[in-house]
Computed example of a mutant assay.
Amino acid sequence: MERVWYVAYGSNLALERFRCYVSGGRPVGGAREYPGCRDKREPERVVSIDVPGGLVFAGESMVWGGGMAFYDAKGPGKVACRAYLVTAEQLGDIAAQEMRRLPGGEFARDLAGLLADVESVHTMGPGRYETVTRLGIRDGAPMFTVTHGDVSELEPVAPSATYVRWIAAGLREAHGWDPAQIAGYLIAAAGVRDTWTVDDLEAIAACGYSDFRRAVEKG
């Protein structure tokens, strides 16, 4: 399998943040330096898509603090995503870095090797992003995302302001949404709706890029 779509739904909606997984680096406001993929070529194509399901925030991010985004295939509605056309090996390295494993290590190689056989869902382990979900085919290449094995068992946890800023920036960049659309989308997610307000979400989404970077750098 030469090319696959990696489908992002969290902070990787923003191209600048996603590039840290490919070429390496530390995202603004993040607590981690990423080594990047072995193959550091840019994705061949980038497209914005929606997929059936829901968005849940849970666990504790060691990069942003607060809850992390998870794709729930059984959730109601649609999830706003961005798909990157990469190699199977790059997707393996990206998923490995999500789990703080080394690019090119056993986990990355195993994941890249099994993609051709994933027809729906394949769980590699109990970790937060160790389940691969196939989301269909686009232009002849299969689409995959990574999430938790059973999202329904997770206790919702509010995401941090920095994480929300990156996701809001990605939604604006990928889907062209205005602040009201972004706030309306995020407030429906478990982990957000009981902690954040629509007004706060709109204020974050209304930041221009320079203001966004300054806000993220301040935390």
Rank of each mutant, 00 (worst) to 15 (best):
Y71F: 15
Y71Q: 13
K74N: 06
G75M: 05
P76D: 13
P76L: 07
G77R: 04
A80V: 02
A80P: 00
A80M: 07
R82E: 09
R82I: 12
R82L: 12
A83V: 05
V86L: 15
V86H: 13
T87L: 03
E89G: 06
D93K: 06
I94Q: 01
A96V: 02
A96S: 09
Q97Y: 01
Q97V: 01
Q97G: 01
M99C: 05
R100A: 14
R101L: 14
L102K: 14
P103C: 03
P103V: 02
G104I: 01
G105E: 06
E106Q: 03
E106R: 04
F107Y: 15
A108G: 06
R109E: 15
D110K: 11
L111H: 13
L111A: 14
A112I: 10
G113Y: 08
V118F: 09
E119L: 11
S120A: 15
S120P: 00
S120R: 15
S120H: 12
V121R: 15
V121H: 12
M124K: 04
M124I: 14
G125A: 10
P126V: 07
P126Y: 07
G127V: 04
R128H: 10
R128S: 11
E130S: 14
T133C: 15
T133Y: 14
R134D: 02
L135T: 04
D139I: 01
D139G: 04
A141W: 09
F144C: 07
F144K: 08
T145V: 14
T147Q: 11
G149I: 00
D150P: 00
V151H: 00
V151Q: 01
S152T: 14
S152M: 09
L154Y: 06
E155M: 13
P156W: 03
V157I: 04
V157R: 13
T162F: 02
V164M: 14
R165V: 05
W166Y: 11
I167F: 01
A168H: 00
A168Q: 02
G170K: 04
L171A: 06
L171K: 00
L171M: 12
E173G: 12
A174I: 05
A174R: 12
